[in-house]
C-alpha cells in the first residue's frame, strides 16, 4: 500500500496472541480447578487446544507483520 500503515495483520496477530494466552490460561486453570457446571465434551479440554492454536497463529502474524520489518 502507498501509505505506511501498520499492517492490519499485525493488529490481528496481537489480538489473537493475547486471546490465546487468556483462553489457554483459562483452560489450564480448568484442569486443576474443574468448573461446577462443566460444558459438554469438557474432557476434550478444547480451551487448551484452541488457546494454544490461537496463540501460535497470532504469534506467527505478529512476527511476520511486525512494524519496521525490512521487507515490508
Amino acid at each position: 500500500m502507498g501509505k505506511h500503515f501498520i499492517p492490519i495483520w499485525f493488529f490481528i496477530g496481537s489480538l489473537l496472541t493475547i486471546y490465546g494466552v487468556l483462553i489457554l490460561g483459562s483452560g489450564i486453570y480448568g484442569l486443576f480447578v474443574p468448573p461446577s457446571n462443566p460444558v459438554t465434551m469438557s474432557h476434550l479440554h478444547i480451551g487448551i487446544w484452541w488457546g494454544a492454536g490461537m496463540f501460535l497463529l497470532g504469534l506467527a502474524y505478529v512476527v511476520r507483520f511486525r512494524p519496521n520489518r525490512k521487507d515490508m
Binding site: G25, V39, M41, S42, G47
Partner: peptide, 10 residues
C-alpha cells in the same frame, strides 16, 4: 454447550 470460560467470551 461447548464453550468453557474464555471460549465463551470469544
Amino acid at each position: 454447550r461447548y464453550c468453557s470460560p474464555g471460549l465463551l467470551g470469544l
